[in-house]
């Protein structure tokens, strides 16, 4: 019985996590072919295909998609931190309101992110709310094109990922000793200086964890760039979908997945180290 309880989930995960990942690796070295499924594996006679991975390194379209994704993910994570640091600390110090406020931050996470993106589409459209406000203020009579821009995409990403960033900062902030900051102020530090020199350094591991918790999933994001971003925001998630579903080029899509994983492996390991230390 005890052995069975180890074996059954182990086999499940081996079959549906480990083996699939290995297949992505094999597919990245396969050849695109006519037929169903549309590829021929390295053992079908043609040997391994180094072209897919070489293409990623040499073709600026693919290279840029990886670079853009990392940049957008980093920007998203940085913007999330900017909001999450004060939010996490304020919630930790909210006394009896703590749980209610934490719930208010987490509830949107449970409401489904598609819905929230839908809300942003409604707000940012040419006839949307934000344009109505701008027109109402008399700043311009031409609608600003806000939707399908990099800005809209970033707003949507920050909106979707902000709760992930607040959680670790809140958890770390509850362990802070507010007396330390008080002592610094009593000794003559301005509140700003006390915050920067006393509070922030104590939050560093949580800051790193929060950054990575946003950065890692954001790097592969597909839905938000597709629904809010401009057509030229060809992030790797979008390119991968395109290669797979439109071009039916499974090997190149797999090579993109491998490249994304290679780029993320460092952040993932760092994140797991931070988790173990906490």
């Amino acid at each position: 019985m005890r052995i069975a309880l180890r074996l059954i989930p182990g086999l499940w995960l081996a079959l549906l996590v480990a083996a699939p990942l290995a297949l992505v690796g094999v597919m990245a070295l396969s050849w695109q072919a006519e037929g169903v499924p549309p590829y021929s594996p390295p053992w079908a006679g043609e040997g391994t295909n180094p072209e897919n991975l070489r293409l990623l390194a040499e073709d600026p379209y693919y290279r840029d998609s990886l670079g853009q994704s990392l940049l957008v993910a980093a920007l998203t994570a940085a913007l999330c931190l900017l909001l999450a640091i004060p939010m996490g600390i304020a919630i930790a110090r909210a006394g009896k309101w703590r749980n209610a406020l934490l719930g208010a931050v987490l509830l949107p996470f449970w409401t489904g992110f598609l819905i929230r993106i839908g809300a942003w589409i409604g707000l940012l459209r040419d006839e949307g709310w934000i344009n109505a406000i701008i027109r109402g203020l008399g700043w311009t009579d031409q609608p600003l094109h806000l939707l399908y821009t990099h800005g809209a995409m970033l707003v949507g990403m920050v909106h979707a990922y902000l709760p992930f960033a607040v959680l670790p900062l809140f958890a770390a902030a509850t362990r802070l000793d507010p007396l330390l900051e008080q002592a610094a102020e009593d000794l003559g530090a301005t509140p700003g200086r006390a915050f920067l020199t006393i509070t922030l350094p104590q939050l560093l591991p949580a800051l790193a964890a929060a950054f990575l918790l946003v950065f890692i999933p954001a790097a592969g994001e597909y839905v938000i760039p597709e629904l809010l971003g401009p057509p030229n925001a060809t992030l790797v998630g979008r390119v991968l979908f395109q290669e797979f579903f439109q071009s039916r080029d499974w090997p190149v899509a797999s090579a993109l997945a491998v490249a994304l994983l290679v780029l993320l492996i460092g952040p993932i390991i760092l994140f797991q180290r931070l988790g173990r230390a906490a």
Binding site: P20, I216, V236, A257
Partner: peptide, 10 residues
Amino acid sequence: VLPEVVTGLS
């Protein structure tokens, strides 16, 4: 920790 697109494809 895997990006969704990688999990989905795999």
